[in-house]
Design a protein around this nucleic acid. Structure first.
Lengths: 200, 200
DNA sequence: CTATATTTATGACTGCAGTCACATTTGACC
DNA sequence: GGTCAAATGTGACTGCAGTCATAAATATAG
């Protein structure tokens, strides 16, 4: 790795580290780019060489976290249990990880929405986090279809989208609640109902 | 109505009208509050007497539209059809109304997210649009429970939340798609699956 | 009609995100 | 090491959302 690349990652990490601390101390809104750069010992313009906007930092936070989570999933003891449980475990795991920092999650969800809405991200491609979630669930359901854990006639992809939708809604409701709800409990109850169906 | 109240509504309508036009012409971002107020013939400060932020305008747009829709629902020919169809019709109707202006819908969804995330709206109360949707669906399912259209053991509220979640997810996917999907078709397919269930 | 209170309007001003023309550092090649 | 090109750093500057002290308009009371 060249000197240039070394300095680059160094600077990016410095920004990441300082801003993370400041956001925790005083919140996202009240932290200015000026402060971040001053504490990081760089000029204001430099910040924008690394992150196109202040909000882009939030996206970066989210990506970092997501990587950790999806990695962990692979290593879980998920072999040999019914598909319903597999999916429930997966989503509960996601939920629990998110439950740890509500304020940050709020900001990230918000920023993610902005990202989806504003020009960036042409069609719903790789970068789309919801899409990735759907794909993962889809994989689990596909396996389930082979073992006979789900209806053979099932449109697996559509079902995955439904599950993602339920996850998203629970997340938003939880973010917007006054902590009376447990996000992870809510999710697992709903997955159950999805497998049973609503109609008689 | 006093002179004061008359002038107030007049000014608010003027702002609403001018900003609507400008947003369509040049988009939300590129329209400045200065422009809006100049065209409306008022001072900049006045704008903020009516809307706390520029974005609050979007919320107002949404509210106006929503009123129209929910009113229409009441008057629909929804008597005597199965619960599944009632709910499908309702959501398809919502979807179709939203499909008419994708760009504006994007902005409104985005702004709604911001609204939920940033301080405003303590716990998820009346003002929460998703909550209102859930309540409406819940009403339909309750009726359905009486006629025996849904499982008697069903947790009706939870089911409504699931349906709302599916609606929201479809909406977002559609907003983020390159117009290959029909939002309203997508919804009706998923409601069907929800009634059938996923498991064997 | 005058005096006083309350509500609404005003626009110069502030603070901050984001830009840009220019300076500095790094890498590559001789 | 010297020379040039490309990448990165810099901070004064710009544009816009939002504020606030003050002015104007309207309501209320005597």
């Amino acid at each position: 790795m060249s000197l240039r690349e070394k300095k680059k990652t160094e600077t990016k990490n410095k920004i990441f580290e300082v801003s993370g601390r400041l956001f925790k101390e005083k919140g996202f809104e009240k932290t200015t780019v000026d402060e971040i750069t001053k504490e990081a010992g760089i000029a204001k313009g430099t910040f924008f060489n690394y992150f196109p906007t202040k909000e882009a930092l939030l996206l970066y936070f989210g990506e970092q976290k997501e990587e950790l989570i999806y990695d962990l999933i692979e290593n879980e003891t998920m072999k040999g249990i019914p598909t319903k449980e597999k999916i429930t475990n997966f989503l509960v795991f996601l939920a629990e990880s998110v439950e740890k920092d509500k304020a940050l999650t709020k900001l990230m969800v918000f920023e993610y929405t902005r990202y989806m809405v504003h020009s960036g991200l042409g069609p719903c491609e790789d970068k789309c986090r919801l899409h990735r979630l759907t794909e993962t669930v889809c994989g689990l359901l596909d396996e389930g279809a082979k073992i006979g854990d789900v209806k053979t006639s099932l449109d697996v992809y559509k079902a995955s989208e439904i599950i993602t939708g339920v996850y998203l809604h629970s997340l938003i409701m939880w973010l917007n609640s006054e902590d009376k709800i447990s996000f992870s409990n809510d999710i697992s109850g709903k997955i159950n109902m999805l497998f049973e169906g609503i109609g008689v």
